[in-house]
């Protein structure tokens, strides 16, 4: 490679390195702000973001969902394994909402209960036909890896 090209390559490399470093530093500094939600464990530990409204994410605890029969009011517990928080919400839920499902709720803490004004469902990265899911349930495999081997 002739020296002119080498110099250009070096300059481009340095520029990229500089930009990467700047972006990495910025993102590390903004780590808290980039994350969409905190976990119930964060709430238990008092690590609640400033401002009134924030988001909490976790799994809907099995058998914790209590619905009003005549309104859209609903209460359920959300856990991340390390902590649990009760969520109180009135409104339409996404189609994926169910027990054992990951959700993200936005709202604020009032008397230890998380009053949500929005509930979003988070789905996992697994895709399989219902029969396979059923078979896995029957076999009682804890973490379904539907492809089996690879």
């Amino acid at each position: 490679m002739n020296p002119k090209r080498k110099r250009r390559l070096l300059l481009v490399g340095l520029l990229l390195l500089g930009v990467s470093a700047a972006v990495a530093l910025t993102l590390t500094a903004l780590k808290e702000n980039v994350s969409l939600f905190i976990t119930p464990a964060d709430i238990a530990a008092g690590r609640i973001p400033q401002g009134n409204q924030f988001r909490v994410g976790g799994i809907v605890v099995a058998n914790s969902v209590k619905r009003d029969s005549d309104s859209l009011h609903i209460q359920f517990d959300v856990t991340d394994g390390a902590g649990t928080v009760r969520v109180d919400y009135t409104g339409i839920l996404p189609d994926l909402f169910r027990e054992g499902q990951g959700i993200v709720a936005q709202g604020s803490i009032e008397n230890g209960i998380f009053k949500a004004n929005e509930v979003l469902a988070k789905h996992d990265e697994k895709y399989m036909p219902p029969e396979v899911a059923e078979a896995l349930k029957r076999a009682n495999t804890p973490a379904p890896h539907p492809t089996g081997a690879q």
Binding site: D124, E125, K126, Y127, M128, P129, H145, P146, T147, Q150
Partner: peptide, 10 residues
């Protein structure tokens, strides 16, 4: 090489 998708869908 690990995938969380059933082969019939993949």
């Amino acid at each position: 090489g690990e995938s969380h998708m059933h082969p019939s869908m993949l």
